[in-house]
Design a binder for these strands. Structure first.
Lengths: 336, 336
DNA sequence: CTGAAAGCGCTTACAG
DNA sequence: CTGAAAGCGCTTACAG
């Protein structure tokens, strides 16, 4: 069960290994190799069950046909859905995807970039952490293809694909207001990242326009705290603010913590409190009552990100920086 | 920003590349290289920020320090948890993990094995599909290190690590009986795989011992059907059998479908029906009432599987076939 | 104690 | 139209 190499095919077909390589890479015609030889070589390759050794080819070309995908947390359904679509898209184009989670840890993120760099990935798709701007700059300096998703740095000139975070929160808040909610709270995390800031701004602008903005209705949860601490913080907050009749959660893990908090407090949804959360999740559909969400345009983001990355990888330096905004979608269920 | 190679280090340190290679691979002492040279080489490597090129080293050694992990469905929390622990364990030992999902599709599984083989992984951890026995045999013939998890083929001599499926279902059924349930149903899928058969046998043996086994209380769901069809099938079944007072779901996705079915039917848990499901899931904890489960010994399975695989990878043919059974744990919540 | 050299399996510029 | 040869960056058996 010896490994078949192009050398074996060359010997069997009675041609040189160069000819075999050209034929197998589809460059036969371009190199003016005769039809007969092309067919012969292909037949022999098939007969011997030849499988190209990607490692050897990578060593020679410096390309691995792989892309590195860095997300915040692959066990969060939003990111795992994103990863799945990206992987499918990449596979269509003959690329493999390596994925890893940052856990929102800057140091870990920088390390992951290093190790993917060392694995010789051909390009990066990254959901950056707060202080990753410098590491991204480093990639740009190396002329590495990079596309950011979900978030970006306003002052850095890199292609990115994100949802329209401002709009999603604005529309959801507006929906609460139309339904007659008066004391609408928002639960955000302590991150300084642009996507969270924009979501919060979408909320506060909608509230201000309705003339009912109250800054004490905003709760910021520490991202790094565990779920129990988040639940406790939410319970604390809502006990101090009994008048709240609606709440917008700016990410699914906060919404999930919120549901547990309300369960413990005995609050009924939507009678006592209305809920909308960012990012859909299986538990939101299953919950009684089911929870309304702002669904991310996951397919749109994934497909566009891969496309932009491919442009960079194939066109070398000759590509444009593109900044793409995909619209989210408010899905109304029973929680409002 | 040129790539640093061992050649650069050799020149800078004034020694040969062989010496550099020995030192960097920790074989300096063994090869009798002087302390002074070792230190010198290490310093230079550090100074130049040398990063070994894994591709070149793989081509030469035939090893990639990577393992292929094939699971049924990485978006199922049981498998993603398993994957995370396996990845952590492997990383500790300097191994990378490539993972992929079979979707319980035999052909796809066989393809995945082929493509991982082509990626030159050093070993496999696999949750096999029904007809994968031959592909596994093929790996064994190639002397590829293989460990199966979650399930196995009774007549095939391969190391595997699985939970004690029989015991988990037996204990859960016994628990229902002790609680006074009389008409206890079980929901399984149509798979012929050993782990599902054993779970069902655990249930039926417990029922028989209590003298209350009734074969019409068993429902088999088509694995390949989508969630809606599963929900419909469950509703159908329970409408025809109104006397059922408890149900054991033999995998989390069936339990989740069951919860949606009962929600639509207006059945109250546990007043109208008691529930226990295999495999814990976030939604089971969040659900009102929270759902009792048979938790898989995920850490135990993952750690043991990696350990067995490492034994095979390092000891060549000199390893033992090990068949390991890890006990699950019945977690009582509010649904019984 | 250390170095020169072969070779892993490919790709591709060059020669004819 | 096709082949001989260099080289990607390593590892390691061999020689001294």
């Amino acid at each position: 069960m010896k490994k078949i190499t192009i050398k074996d095919i060359a010997i069997e077909s009675g041609v040189s290994i160069s000819t075999v390589s050209f034929v197998l890479n589809g460059k036969g015609e371009k190199m003016g190799i005769s039809k007969a030889v092309i067919v012969k070589v292909q037949d022999v390759a098939e007969k011997l069950h030849y499988k190209p050794n990607m490692i050897a080819s990578s060593l020679r070309t410096g390309k691995t046909r792989s892309i590195g995908l860095i997300v915040e947390d692959i066990s969060n359904q939003f990111f795992s859905d994103l990863a799945r679509v990206i992987e499918d898209e990449a596979k269509k184009l003959g690329y493999r995807v390596f994925y890893c989670s940052t856990g929102d840890d800057n140091e870990r993120s920088a390390e992951l970039i290093q190790s993917l760099l060392q694995a010789n990935v051909d390009g990066f798709i990254i959901t950056p952490t707060e202080k990753l701007e410098k590491s991204i700059d480093h990639l740009l300096k190396l002329k590495m293809p990079v596309v950011l998703i979900d978030r970006y740095f306003p002052n850095q000139n890199v292609s990115h694909v994100v949802m329209d975070n401002y709009n999603g929160a604005y529309v959801a808040t507006e929906f609460f207001i139309k339904k007659g909610c008066k004391n609408i709270a928002v639960v955000n995390n302590t991150s300084e990242m642009i996507q969270m800031k924009l979501r919060e701004k979408g909320y506060s602008d909608a509230m201000k326009e309705a003339g009912i903005y109250d800054e004490t209705l905003t709760l910021h949860l520490d991202y790094r705290s565990n779920e129990e601490s988040k639940i406790d913080a939410i319970i604390d907050f809502f006990k101090k603010k009994p008048g709240i009749d609606a709440v917008l959660f700016l990410a699914n893990y906060m919404g999930l913590a919120g549901l547990q908090a309300f369960k413990r407090m005995g609050l009924r949804i939507p009678e006592d409190i209305s809920i909308i959360s960012y990012d859909d999740h299986y538990s939101f559909k299953l919950h009684s009552p089911s929870i309304s969400v702002i669904e991310q345009p996951i397919d749109g983001i994934a497909v566009k990100a891969v496309q932009l990355l491919m442009d960079q990888m194939t066109n070398g330096n000759d590509f444009m920086i593109e900044k793409v905004l995909e619209k989210g979608k408010l899905i109304i269920r029973e929680s409002v």
